[in-house]
Amino acid sequence: MHEHIAEAVKEPDVVTVPPGAICLRFETMKLYSALGAVRHLLDTGQVKPGDTLIDSSSGIYAHALALACHRHGLNCHIVGSTTIDRTLRVQLEILGATLEQVRPSQNLRLDQNLRVQRIGELLQQNPHYHWMRQYHDAIHYLGYRDIADLIRKEVPHGPLSLVGGVGTGASTGAIATYLREAGRDVTLIGVQPFGSVTFGAEHVSDPDMIIAGIGSSIPFHNVRHHLYDRIHWINFDYAMSGAIELLRASGIFAGLSAGAAYLATLWEQEREREQDADRTYVFLAADTGHRYVDTAYAHHTAAPGLGTMRPHEVTTQNELKHPWSAMNWPPPDNGLLHDAPALMAEPA
Rank of each mutant, 00 (worst) to 15 (best):
M1Q: 15
E3T: 14
H4L: 14
E7G: 08
V9Q: 02
K10M: 09
V14S: 03
V17Y: 02
P18V: 11
G20Q: 06
A21G: 11
R25A: 07
R25T: 01
E27L: 15
T28W: 07
S33D: 05
G36A: 08
A37C: 12
A37I: 06
A37W: 06
V38T: 08
R39H: 13
H40Y: 14
G45D: 05
Q46W: 10
K48L: 11
T52C: 14
S57E: 06
G59L: 03
Y61S: 09
Y61G: 06
A64N: 01
L67Y: 06
A68K: 07
C69G: 02
H70I: 07
R71C: 15
H72N: 04
H72Y: 15
H72L: 11
G73N: 09
I78Q: 05
G80H: 01
T83I: 07
R86Q: 15
L88I: 02
R89T: 12
L92K: 13
E93M: 09
L95I: 13
G96D: 07
A97S: 13
T98D: 08
E100H: 10
V102M: 10
D111G: 01
N113L: 12
L114K: 12
L114A: 14
Q117D: 14
R118N: 09
E121K: 09
E121T: 08
Q125I: 11
Y129R: 06
H130M: 04
W131D: 04
Q134H: 13
Q134A: 05
R145H: 15
D146P: 02
I147S: 00
I151S: 04
K153V: 04
E154F: 01
P156H: 07
L160N: 03
S161K: 03
V163F: 00
G167N: 00
T168K: 02
G173Y: 01
Y178H: 04
L179A: 03
E181Q: 11
A182E: 11
R184H: 07
V186C: 02
P193I: 00
P193H: 07
P193A: 05
G195L: 04
F199C: 02
G200Q: 02
V204K: 07
V204S: 08
G213D: 03
I218N: 13
R224L: 13
H225A: 05
H226N: 10
Y228M: 00
Y228D: 01
R230Q: 09
R230S: 04
H232L: 04
H232F: 06
W233P: 00
I234F: 01
D237R: 12
A239C: 12
A249F: 01
G251R: 06
F253Q: 06
G255C: 02
A258S: 02
A261F: 00
L263R: 09
A264I: 05
T265Y: 00
E268C: 04
E270R: 14
E270P: 05
R273H: 12
Q275H: 14
T280Y: 00
A286F: 05
H290I: 12
H290W: 13
V293C: 09
V293Q: 10
D294N: 15
Y297Q: 04
H299I: 06
G305D: 12
T308Y: 13
M309L: 14
P311E: 07
H312M: 05
E313K: 08
T316Q: 06
K321W: 12
H322E: 08
W324H: 15
A326Y: 03
M327R: 03
N328C: 10
P331L: 12
L336P: 15
H338T: 13
P341Y: 10
L343S: 14
M344H: 13
